[in-house]
Write a protein that binds this DNA or RNA. Structure first.
Length: 312
DNA sequence: AAGACGAAAGTGGTTGA
DNA sequence: TCAACAACTTTCGTCTT
């Protein structure tokens, strides 16, 4: 009987044992607020909080009308998604407004808009978030990192770091900082290419942000780049793992300190791919890692020397 | 002919006086 | 602020497969 009821209202949990039948599967019934043994039906608890809405709705329109919450707030909207909007053509009841009222509402909306972004900080933020949106989109950056970058930008703005510097370079620096903090393998080069600002300007802003906001950056690990590069040149999991192993060994003999992590990763993949049937050229790997083939070459030469490996 | 190699000169960033 | 320096890039001629 329990098993056939609407699964949405129930959730099977496993915690403790039923004193009646000694089985450990329980079901929460969100309609009645009871915790019930899945096996024998014994009610163990009947005062659970019901987390569902207290109202009922039968159509989609009703759901929309009765719901009191909207989408979650987000740092990558300049007002976190919380702001008043004006409907100028229809009233609260859906009836068309008179022409006179419509004009009035349009005026009100205009003034509301002006008041909303009247402070320079708000105006700056709304511009910056638009730029962030554009850049993040271009770089295919996931939402979590975008939000992290937005948070960094807000802090930078609070500290007054944006004044006298361009919004877009601070935004680019915030994105790079967010990537570094979340250990996402993005090179500064990629961000520079997507941004209109020069590398010099972006890196200067990046260093400033780190210094003023006291950010501690995790050191970029070559392993982070392995899968990114491997998928780009079409290497399989086995080769990836082999490259990881090479890097782990290299770390032990301290052969990779202070080197470009992407170059190390590409070199490790180059060595690993040579053990396989599928060989990748230095050029391809270099392109995928966004370094030159000379760097790949030097790195892999040093790796096989330090690790006493030999290529097949 | 493509890929690998290595030398040499150049670039941009870091460090320490 | 500047020179020294390490890492990396660019370029190019040569060698290997």
């Amino acid at each position: 009987m329990l098993k056939t009821e609407d699964a949405y209202h129930q959730r099977i949990i496993q915690k403790g044992r039923c004193p009646e039948c000694n089985k450990s599967e329980f079901v929460t019934d969100r309609n009645t607020g009871e915790l019930v043994c899945f096996n024998c039906g014994l009610v163990l608890k009947d005062v659970m909080l019901n987390q569902r809405a207290e109202w009922r709705a039968y159509t989609h329109d009703e759901v929309k009308a009765k719901a009191r919450t909207g989408p979650p707030t987000s740092y990558s909207h300049y007002d976190k998604g919380l702001s008043t909007t004006f409907q100028t053509t229809r009233g609260y009841d859906g009836q068309r407004l008179s022409t006179k009222t419509q004009l009035k509402m349009t005026r009100l909306r205009k003034w509301d808009y002006r008041a909303k972004i009247h402070s320079s900080i708000d105006r700056n933020l709304s511009q910056a978030m638009a730029e962030l949106e554009r850049l993040a989109d271009k770089l295919h950056i996931p939402k979590s990192i975008k939000d992290e970058a937005a948070l960094i930008y807000r802090k930078a703005l609070d500290e007054g770091l944006v004044r006298g510097r361009s919004i877009s370079s601070i935004v680019a620096a915030s994105i790079y900082a967010a990537c570094r903090i979340t250990e996402t393998p993005r090179k500064i080069k990629e961000i520079v290419e997507a941004s209109a600002k020069s590398r010099k300007e972006i890196t200067r802003c990046y260093r400033l942000i780190i210094r003023k906001l006291n950010l501690k950056m995790p050191i970029m690990n070559p392993e982070m780049y392995i899968s990114k590069i491997a998928s780009k040149v079409g290497l399989d999991q086995k080769t990836e793992l082999k490259a990881m192993e090479i890097i782990r060994k290299a770390k032990r003999v301290k052969a990779i300190a202070g080197k470009e992590p992407a170059g190390i990763a590409a070199a490790a993949l180059y060595i690993a791919s040579h053990d396989n049937t599928k060989k990748i050229t230095q050029k391809n790997l270099a392109d995928a890692a966004k370094v030159t083939e000379v760097t790949v070459r030097n790195r892999y030469k040093k790796l096989i020397k330090d690790l006493k490996l030999n290529l097949k």
